[in-house]
Nucleic acid binder design. Structure first.
Lengths: 343, 343
DNA sequence: GTGAAAGCGCTAACAT
DNA sequence: ATGTTAGCGCTTTCAC
């Protein structure tokens, strides 16, 4: 075991081997046209013979671009963030660039430190899934390197962005429940201060409003949740004179926790935001609003490369509409005893 | 928008600003001790004042190490591979290194091309989830840079490795079924030529053998699978004079496809290899053998850094035992009509 | 179409 | 404890 102990060939070695100047080798490497076919062939043969690989560090030092983009997210093990990584990587390799992945674990301090490290490494751009905490550092970041925010913005800081159209998605899901005859629809979500949660809640209320249904604060649960907390909430709902017949779960965590909490026989229709594995199976199939993750990742990475190719126009804000996947959503005649307006 | 147009400060600027030589700044940057406290403080102040960030490219060019490791996998969106990425990244940041992620999509040609690109970028080591196809290139790779294989080896090539103990895991799962009174246990797996599948099948047979149960080829299904194919196989099994009462699914894909295929009422006990979301819920809870992904990722990344810190001893081969998670595994008295040996 | 020389920003080697 | 010089491997500039 003796990694690279035999000094790797440099451009000088290739030039000597081919009997040309280094600049000529450089021209071949970079596909510049001002090289005769014979020279080019000879140089390429020498490259082969010496197993030469250009030293990216030297090239970066000289050209000041690294052909590498960074993806900074909260948790690469989380399915949506992992799939986004796949889409970004695909665009990167296509552009002959590398993708580094850094993880913040929702920690603003770590967010700053990993980004500092990336800047030191001369990354050409950053796809950022922000922690959602503003800072002087993040305010200036966009001046140093192209930044595209995904999932949510940096509060108070404008960057290029690619978000899911959360409100529209939620509207679609809740409207489907209304169309299926539900009039009492509960909302289960995460902390209200989260950007995506706020948008989805707005969509929920908007759909109720459009259908002429009165919102009811008692049907809204927006807290960090676990099975005991949800069990308690469900028990409370059952005691209401007019209990909910359906629940809109504003995150896949909410939806899966509900699945684990609800008795198998509970007569409650579920719609969830974000698809999740086996959503097609549990409780006879749960309808979901599914984010178009590949589309979002591709758009985010392309936004970076657009900036790199010199585009200095204003910020672009892309909203990717999610897809509603109906599953086991049957119209329930018994729930339509009262007439009400429907979209 | 004008990324970094104002030339970024260099070590020269800092030296001038602090009134010292560049080498002194370099010493402060690298934490060398041979600097007086007063100079150090002054240099650090200048670094702050100029918002100086060392240029990693120049450093890499000079020091010949990049403090970056590569994770090359088949599909970063796949849960196990994504979680492994998280564990590797954690070790990397701890070592002040970056992690790049490259994806092969099971394509040996792409595997080679992404690795070539990484070598050009001077990565210090590679954690490789191989496509499983041998090549001259991969044979030589270990001579150029430290390589740790995860999940499976490069056929015919020895490297450091961190694998799941597939056989032992399968034995544990099948033994649990036997202990619960099952005598007719079917095997559902992916293509037999896959390394992990072969090991898990060995474990399955070994458990049957140890319990004195006769293996039955009719109960073995090892093919690329979908719902129609599995439905056909299940129908066939039901027609046997002695149909299986349990199934060992050798991958989470097999297990989830079975869940989608089996009628809800089917009286078949399932044990799966690899945990999967909602395995605790579907069919009353499915027992699984769960890989210790964080342990594996940490071990793999550490193996790289061990090599980087100069360890040139022989290859290490780490087998991480998976954990059996019993769920809803009841001993079925009616299945114990015949006596048989049990471990 | 090709080449020589300078220099990107840093650190190793060798002063002092 | 601090400084000077050379050079890592490449591309840029400018010659020819």
């Amino acid at each position: 075991m003796d990694f690279g102990s035999d000094r790797r060939a440099t451009i000088n070695d290739v030039a000597r081997h081919a009997g040309v100047a280094v600049k000529t080798v450089s021209r071949v490497l970079n596909g510049e046209r001002a090289v005769s076919d014979t020279t080019r062939t000879r140089v390429q043969a020498s490259i082969q013979a010496l197993d030469y690989r250009p030293n990216a560090a030297a090239r970066v030092l000289r050209k000041r671009v690294s052909r590498s983009i960074a993806y900074v997210c909260e948790d690469i093990a989380e399915p949506v963030q992992a799939r986004l990584a796949g889409a970004i990587e695909a665009v990167a390799v296509e552009a002959d660039a590398a993708m580094t992945v850094s993880v913040t674990h929702h920690d603003p301090a770590r967010e700053q430190s990993v980004i500092e490290s990336l800047l030191s490494r001369q990354v050409d751009g950053i796809v950022l899934w922000p922690t959602g905490v503003r800072s002087r550092f993040l305010e200036r970041l966009g001046r140093i390197v192209p930044v595209v925010c995904v999932d949510r913005p940096i509060p108070g800081v404008e960057t290029d962005s690619v978000f899911c159209d959360n409100q529209r998605g939620a509207e679609e899901g809740v409207s489907a429940l209304i169309a299926a005859g539900h009039r009492r629809i509960a909302f289960v979500g995460d902390l209200p201060e989260l950007f995506t949660q706020a948008e989805r809640f707005t969509g929920y209320k908007q759909s109720l409003y459009a259908a002429g249904l009165a919102p009811d604060d008692r049907l809204v649960f927006r807290r960090r949740q676990d099975i005991p907390a949800l069990a308690k909430q469900l028990a409370y709902w059952q005691l209401l004179p007019d209990p909910p017949t359906a629940i809109f779960a504003a995150s896949s965590l909410s939806a899966t926790t509900l699945v684990r909490t609800l008795p198998a026989t509970a007569d409650l229709q579920l719609v969830g935001f974000d698809d999740f594995p086996l959503a097609d199976v549990v409780r006879g199939g749960i309808s979901v609003i599914s984010q178009e993750v590949p589309t979002m990742g591709t758009a985010a990475a392309q936004a970076i490369f657009r900036r790199l190719s010199g585009d200095r126009t204003g910020f672009t804000h892309t909203r990717v509409p999610p897809t509603f996947i109906p599953r086991n959503l049957v119209v329930r005649a018994d729930r339509q005893s009262e007439s009400f307006s429907r979209r």
